[in-house]
């Protein structure tokens, strides 16, 4: 017990003193997750709008599949991207395995279903009457999409933040296609895992506290957004 107390105090020290290594890892984590989330949302918002506004066969099934993929295990995505990017794989030529780029690709694949699914349900939350009112006021198809996205902005933002949170806290992809290379692909989850196995309790706890803190911030922001609607 005293050991844990000691670890905790040390961890707080690391955080409060802005320990360069901890800060560097935290910054990289935010950068990689942020990039993943940004790129995934660039794909997801238009795609979700398309799925929401178009009527087509198998729409229900597609949405069900997307929702099922919300909880795909990170190691499965890691494995998939690993095979994709490994030397013998179809994209092996790129030579980006064990780089931040590979991690971004993996995290994008991981969170795109969440962004898609939650954006679609956010858009569905905008009433048919609002859409028709805008149509009557002369909105073109594209203007209508923008309006609906705007009407659903809080729910859409909540979807993005949830996706960001998932990218931030996942371990499987970062470990398998990032490789936890110090100063290059090491992020909070991989660093925490390594520190724990190495017995560097204060480092692990410091990272853990920061991760928890970020989760808390994300949760507060989400709650705020859900109250706005």
């Amino acid at each position: 017990m005293t050991e844990i107390w000691y670890g905790l105090t040390k961890a707080m020290e690391l955080i409060i003193s802005f320990d360069p290594e901890v800060m560097e890892i935290a910054a990289r984590t935010l950068r990689i997750a942020g990039t993943s989330c940004l790129l995934a949302s660039l794909i997801s918002l238009p795609l979700a709008s398309l799925i929401h506004f178009r009527r087509f066969h198998g729409k229900r099934v597609l949405i069900n599949i997307i929702q099922t993929l919300f909880s795909v295990p990170t190691v499965i995505v890691g494995l998939f991207v690993f095979v994709l990017l490994s030397r013998a794989g179809p994209l092996g030529e790129l030579g980006i395995l064990f780089t931040p780029a590979a991690m971004v690709i993996g995290q994008m694949i991981l969170i795109t279903p969440i962004l898609l699914g939650l954006t679609i349900s956010a858009l569905s939350g905008v009433s048919k009457e609002v859409v028709e009112t805008a149509t009557s006021l002369g909105a073109s198809g594209f203007q209508l999409v923008l309006l609906v996205l705007r009407e659903a902005r809080y729910a859409v933002l909540a979807a993005l933040i949830l996706g960001f949170g998932r990218a931030l806290s996942e371990l499987g992809v970062a470990m398998m296609v990032g490789g936890n290379i110090r100063g290059f692909t090491r992020v909070m989850t991989t660093a925490l895992s390594l520190a724990t196995t190495r017995g560097e309790l204060e480092m692990a706890l410091a990272l853990g506290i920061i991760l928890l803190f970020l989760a808390l911030v994300i949760n507060i922001v989400l709650n705020r957004l859900q109250q706005r609607r």
Binding site: S127, L137, L147, R150
Partner: peptide, 24 residues
Amino acid sequence: SFIHQKPQVFNSSVYDNVACGLRW
């Protein structure tokens, strides 16, 4: 212009509500 039976306002300011048709 069609004024629907149940008035639907957009989730924005009165100004933006009134301006939207002109912007479009």
